Computed example of a mutant assay.
Amino acid sequence: MVSAPTDLSNVRRPITEARGLPNAHYTDPAVFEEEKHALLFDGWAGLAVTADVAEIGDAIPLSFLGMPLLLIRDRQNTVRVFQNICRHRGMILVDQPRKIEGAIRCPYHSWCYATDGKLVSTPHVGGPGQNKHDGIDRALLGLVEVRSHIWMGVVWINVSGDAPRFEDANAKLLERWAEFDKPLFHGGGDSTFTLDVACNWKLAVENYCESYHLPWVHPGLNSYSRLEDHYHIEEKGLFSGQGTLVYRQITGPKGQVFPDFDGLCDKWDTAAEYITAFPNVLLGVHRDHAFAIILEPLGPEKTREHVHLFYPVADTDDTLRQLNATQWKEVFVEDIFVVEGMQRGRHAVSFDGGRFSPAMDGPTHLFHDWVAERLNARRATAQAAE
């Protein structure tokens, strides 16, 4: 049963009058399906990180909102994303992470593809011992490639294929963080972890965008980077988040610190910024490290957070790196009870979306407004086509 379109008129009002998204946007499978296309497929969404396929030939199967994908580093050292299906009968090609030594071979009828997606072998396609057929043009039957782009160590994808170029769609964010447009080195196995959270993915975005909750949810962090040390970051229709004027560089037991990124201006001596690149990538930058959290929506009320930490150099102090990962995991775990509590609250039938603090909730309201704008645009397009 398809739900009627939700009323988003109150969401798009000025923040002093606006209400949040209706409950259905956090609980209803039909709305989740609508948002899948309008918010995640039609734009540039985060899928993985390049470190997931660190070496030539590395390949990992992924699922993105039910779509089977294959992340691979091809023979030319290019990271690519393909639909993980054979062009013959739609069989899954790779079912577990592995290194492709030769070709990607379909386990069903043994059609083979090069790591760049080209169809290179079709055994017996023309009959026993006949590996070609006039009706099968290999040049037209390569793997279906999903449009992708690499930035901040993240593999971004545009499933629909018709979004503006990544550099154009995210030009203002790229300009804001131009100083960090340089090689980032993933910290390795001890610099990545996942968190399974019983909430809609949008609640993770909303919580990350604002600093209002710091004194009560993150008292340790707030003890030195206080609520009053933070500022809002708002770029309508593109991204939102928060920054702090007080960043305390982590120090190891022997006084060691991470090296800084080269070429940073004086602002970053004490500042750090935390931005959500709409829709689903939470980014943080500091003088000596960066992180990316890729939100994987698993359903209306279930999200997996993939956390990755990056550094200015390939080799960093093991103890310090582990301390940093532990510290960030503690912070992110502190948020779980909040987003899960809000998720349960969305089942209160009388909840009207809630109100926003005009002084403190600007970044969150901006995200709600973006969601509503994208949904309204898709609905208008669909209606015009009827």
Rank of each mutant, 00 (worst) to 15 (best):
W151H: 12
R176I: 03
G189N: 13
N84Y: 02
D116Y: 01
D74E: 09
F166N: 04
N77V: 00
V155D: 07
A198Y: 01
S148V: 04
P183I: 00
S121Q: 13
Q130S: 11
T115A: 07
D116M: 05
D116F: 02
C112M: 11
D116R: 07
E179M: 08
D134N: 11
R80D: 00
K118A: 15
V125P: 06
F82L: 08
L140Y: 07
D181M: 05
G90T: 01
V94L: 00
G187K: 02
A178E: 11
K99C: 11
G153W: 03
V159N: 02
P68Y: 09
E175L: 11
N131F: 12
P164Y: 11
G142Q: 08
A103V: 01
Q130W: 01
S110N: 13
A163Y: 03
A163D: 04
D190S: 14
F82K: 03
A163R: 10
G153N: 03
V155C: 09
D116K: 07
I136G: 10
P128I: 14
P164N: 10
H109I: 09
I150P: 00
E167C: 10
V94Q: 06
R105T: 15
P183C: 00
I85T: 11
M91N: 07
G117S: 04
V155G: 06
G142A: 08
I157Y: 11
F185Y: 15
G142P: 03
L173Q: 14
I150M: 12
A169R: 15
A178G: 05
R105Q: 11
V81W: 06
V144L: 13
V146C: 10
V94M: 04
D74T: 06
F82Q: 06
G117K: 08
T192W: 13
I92F: 00
A163T: 05
L174M: 12
W111C: 01
D196G: 07
P123T: 09
N170E: 08
A169E: 14
D168G: 10
D162E: 14
V197Q: 05
K132V: 14
E175W: 09
F180T: 03
I92S: 10
K132R: 15
R87H: 00
L119N: 03
G90Y: 02
G161D: 02
I92W: 04
V197H: 05
W201P: 06
T194R: 13
G142D: 01
D134P: 01
N77S: 15
F82H: 04
K172G: 00
R165T: 12
N131D: 15
D196H: 08
R89M: 09
A198L: 09
L184G: 00
F82Y: 09
D190R: 13
L71N: 07
A139K: 15
D116S: 03
G135F: 09
S191P: 00
D190A: 13
T192A: 12
W156K: 03
